[in-house]
């Protein structure tokens, strides 16, 4: 009888142990699913980041062109691009707040063919998303527009 009672108690304890083990596996599975979901949300946020950077870039007075003293949208001034390469590098810390971990290049496709590297900061990030935005580049001396493209490489992950 004593042995029967002991066996009963051990059975109950074994059931509880199995129950908690199953619960633990269930919890681990759930946290893994949440982690994957969170990583996906992070990737989407990073993809949006390159668009945000491009949006800010196309509205910077440091780059925006003006024709007849009127600012034009989605247009860069050629000579501002020429001086911005060095200027942005000199004020790197200021622009880091704006651009974060990204590489920003502007290529003049139909005019000079020149490539302007405005900002570079990969940091220790390993992954990236790239966004291309078409833009006009205005030469205020020749008074001509040319086609250009902005390439924004936004880095994330470690």
């Amino acid at each position: 009888m004593k042995k029967k009672a002991q066996l009963k108690i051990w059975t109950t304890i074994a059931i509880l142990i199995v129950f908690f083990v199953i619960l633990m596996f269930g919890f681990i599975f759930y946290t893994q699913v949440e982690k994957i979901s969170f990583e996906r949300t992070q990737r989407e946020a990073e993809a949006r980041r390159s668009i945000d950077v491009a949006q800010v870039l196309t509205n910077l007075p440091e780059l925006q062109c003006s024709v007849g003293a009127v600012e034009r949208g989605i247009c860069f001034d050629y000579y501002k691009l020429e001086v911005a390469e060095e200027s942005i590098n000199d004020e790197w810390l200021y622009y880091y707040g704006m651009f974060g971990y990204s590489d920003i290049e502007v290529k003049d496709l139909s005019g000079s063919g020149k490539n302007f590297t405005l900002y570079e900061n990969q940091g220790d990030k390993t992954s990236y998303t790239t966004g291309f935005i078409p833009i006009s580049i205005y030469d205020p001396i020749e008074r001509l527009f040319s086609f250009g493209v902005i390439k924004v490489k936004s880095y994330y992950g470690q």
């Binding site: 007075p61 440091e62 001034d77 000579y79 501002k80 020429e82 001086v83 911005a84 060095e86 200027s87 004020e91 200021y94 205020p140 001396i141």
Partner: peptide, 21 residues
């Protein structure tokens, strides 16, 4: 004011570059 300083310096550099042309 900090942004004004940065933008003004860039505009000045641009003016000097245009002048040289």
């Amino acid at each position: 004011e900090e942004k004004k300083r940065i933008v003004t310096e860039l505009y000045q550099d641009r003016i000097n570059l245009l002048k040289s042309k």
